[in-house]
Design a protein around this nucleic acid. Sequence first.
DNA 1: GAGTGGTCTAGACCACGCG
DNA 2: GCGTGGTCTAGACCACTCT
Lengths: 234, 234
Amino acid sequence: MSKYVSIYNEFVGDIENGILKNGEKLKSESDLMKQYDVSRDTIRKSLNLLEQNGYIQKLKGKGSFVLDRNKFDFPVSGITSFYELSKKMGKEIKTQVEEFSLKAADEKMKVKLELSDEDHIWKVVRVRNIDGENIILDKDYLNGSIIQTLTLDVCKRSLYEYIEGELGLKISYAKKEITVQKASTEDKRLLDLEHYDMVVVVKSYTYLNDTTLFQYTESRHRPDKFKFVDFARR
Amino acid sequence: MSKYVSIYNEFVGDIENGILKNGEKLKSESDLMKQYDVSRDTIRKSLNLLEQNGYIQKLKGKGSFVLDRNKFDFPVSGITSFYELSKKMGKEIKTQVEEFSLKAADEKMKVKLELSDEDHIWKVVRVRNIDGENIILDKDYLNGSIIQTLTLDVCKRSLYEYIEGELGLKISYAKKEITVQKASTEDKRLLDLEHYDMVVVVKSYTYLNDTTLFQYTESRHRPDKFKFVDFARR
DNA sequence: GAGTGGTCTAGACCACGCG
DNA sequence: GCGTGGTCTAGACCACTCT
C-alpha cells in the first residue's frame, strides 16, 4: 500500500467515524507533512483523493474542510457489486440463482461483449430478495475466454470477489446506463412487482485493467425500491 | 490556464476529433515531457485528468491508451445544466417558464436549503419541450441570500451561465439522487405523459466553492425519455 | 505580512511488461 | 535489460484569504 493511500484511508476512517466532524478544518498541508513525515506531494495526493470522493473541500488561502457525508446517503455510484453493497446495509438480503450456464454467444451478446464466433459466454441470472421481497433481477453475461471457470457457489456469493480475489483480475472501469422500461414477462415472473408495470434498468459494461470488456450486466429494479446516489464535481 | 489543463484540453480535442484513435498508444511520459518542454509531473497531471474522465487508460509498463468514447454515448453525469446539454445535442429544444417568484421559504425548503427564518428563495419552474413534446419538468429553488437578483430572461436562457458568468460564483460539487415516483397532478398537467403514470425524479443539491448550498433542483422526466449515462472507475 | 492551497520543476527509486 | 508508468522527495514561486 502506498503512503498516500494509507493516509487517505486514515482520513476516511476518521471522517466516517466522526472523529473529524462536518465543517471541521484539517491541519494545513505543511503541518501534515511534519506529522506524517512525508513530502508535501504525498500529502497533496491524499487530500486530492479525499476531495474527489466528496470527503473534503479544499479552499485556496483558507484550508481543507470536512464535508457533510450524512447528507449524501451513500453514493453507490462507482463500481460496486451487490454483495459489497449488501454488506454495508443492515438489510436482510438473499440471492437466488435462477440460471447459471455456459453457452455459445448469440448475436446480441456477441455485439455487446465484442466476441468472435467461437467464444462462449457465462450467463448468470439472479434474483435479489430484500426484506422478504424479490426486488432486483440481475442478469450477468461474462466473457468465457476471460473467465475460464465459474461455479454455482461463486454466483451465490459474489462474482467480483471471485474475479478479483481468486482469479486476480483487475476491474478497472465501467460504463453504466440507467433507463426505465416496461416490465417484461420475465420481470413479472421473477420479481414481486405488485401493481408496477415498469422496471428501472441499469446496464453496465465492465472493463478490466487492460481495457478488455469482460462483463455485461442488466440489473432490473422494482421502481419504488430503486435509488441511485451520485456525487459529482464540476 | 495552467499548463497541465492546457495539455489536457489539447488531448481531449485530439481524441474527440479522431486525431487520436481508439486503442492508439500515446507517446510515453518522457517523450511528452520533451515535446511540451515541461516536467514529468505536469504531464502526469494531464494524463491523470484524461484517465479520470474516461479518455485514456494507463497501464504500468506498457503505456497510455485511448479508450473508445463512442461506446460511452455522452456521460452526462457530473454537473451539467440543461442549457449546456441542449447545446451539445442536435434536438430542437424549447424552454417554457411556468413560474418565477421570490418568496419566504416554507418549512420544507428551509430544511432542504438550510435556510434561516428570514431568508427568501427563488422558485423557478420550467417545462422542457423536446421535439414538440413536454418531456421534463424542472423545479429550481435558489437561496435568495446568495442569488440577490434574478430575471425572467435569465430563467429562459440558463441559470448556470448567469450564476457563473454574471455573478462570478463558482459551482463546485453536487449531490444527485435518482428515483422513480408516481406522477403528481402537476406532472400530469404540465407534461405530455401519454399513458405513463410515473416519472423519473432527479434531485440535485448544488454547492458553491465555499461549501455553501445554494440550489435545490427537482428534475422530473417522462420515463421513456430518461437516460442517465455514467463512467465510473473502481 | 503570514499562512494557505495551486502549480511547476528536477531528480530518484520502484514495479511491471516484454523481448 | 530496457522502457513504461507509479511513488516519493525537496525546493521554488504564485494566488488567494485573513488580520
